[in-house]
Design a protein around this nucleic acid. Structure first.
Lengths: 123, 123, 123, 123
DNA sequence: GTGGTCTAGACCACT
DNA sequence: GTGGTCTAGACCACG
């Protein structure tokens, strides 16, 4: 999995955090699994340890990992996190639907377009 | 209508552009209507003329207004724009649905959450 | 007000954040007041801009200030914050009381000691 | 009793020391009782012997145990220790009360919140 | 001018 | 070895 895309306007640390969030939510990383050390991941991604640190700090704040002093960072997976993620995404979609509705586009019309796009992508 | 929200992480010029886009698409501004002059709008919003300039440039790029030398900027409204907007929104939703699906959240489960949020907001 | 104490084991950025939190909660800083710029505060405290940045980032996450791009950071004061703070402190005390109670020290005995210490400090 | 909590931000050696302090003060360990050897405890907790060593050193410094050369470490329990502990806790609470008072939260209001939290925890 | 991100390199406490 | 903090100095977008 590509973690960093320099074309992406988002800051690097956020891309790293996002990437790991997805891995954890998908189950690719399990509860208790050790994260790569800050320094080693930095070297792997050829980025700065501070940048990785910032990503890990964010993941910690959001409850995806817990640092153990002198030992490393460990994954914390839990169903609350998945639930929170679902609501996050649903919230973003709700905002879009709301906007479309303000413009006079009906829910049905919009979802039809969405399905069209998804089918096209599946080709 | 509030055009600028400083809590919003997006740059000011983008918020202004977005605001006018919506007004045009909703029909609040009609084809041919004159836009406020850069300076007057800047003063109304108590923001920097450079910022308004940037917003107008973006609107022009997207076809929402046409500048007339020595006279000012004028609204350009057309059905293509509405269609483009619908596809834009649908595209963003499709991306969200895709992400959710990657996480193992079904289309139905997700839309149920969305409807729940929308109903709550309608209280 | 002294913001930084190098004897304090807590990181500098946390001391800065704590200091401002107190100023805001005490009402010394009002809603909408501008914070000193990252660079200027760094220079005043003879510390590094990055350190101040980290403090401001934490204050932002906790809702005490909102950054405005190109303009600076501004104080956000609200009653929810005071309420949250009260509960935070009460929670810490509750934990101490619980611990004391586990050791067989009664609530009354403990609070008597507390009052004794407070009176002594008031001399 | 769980001695180590990796979520706890305090260093492991301090958590171990704290844990034993409580056991001694509660009377679970009596004066003269032998402490587990550094190596055996390290293995039980699957931690580093250096860490246990550091915990024992701290306990010795605070008078909770006395090392006997060639024999091991032995518990030292005494009423002075309990008294010291009470004052330690009372001191921490006094500091919290002081902070709250600086923020304009009255002693009564604060203790009401504390009692509320304690009652809730007792459910 | 502002905030925000990133790099390079150092230091510390903990295990 | 680990994570965490700090400094110095650079770059960018925004207003």
């Amino acid at each position: 999995m590509k973690l960093i895309d320099y074309q992406d306007p988002r800051p690097i640390y956020e891309q790293i955090a996002e990437g790991y969030k997805k891995m954890i939510l998908k189950g690719a990383l399990q509860d208790g699994d050790p994260m790569p050390s800050v320094r080693s991941l930095a070297s792997t991604l050829s980025t700065n340890p501070n940048t990785v640190q910032k990503a890990y700090a964010q993941l910690e704040r959001e409850g995806f990992l817990t640092p153990v002093k002198g030992k490393g960072n460990f994954v914390h997976a839990g169903n609350e996190l998945m639930e929170a993620r679902k609501n996050e995404i649903a919230g973003r979609i709700a905002k879009e639907v709301q906007e479309a509705s303000d413009l006079g586009i009906s829910r049905e019309e919009l979802f039809a377009s969405v399905d069209g796009i998804l089918k096209e992508g599946a080709k």
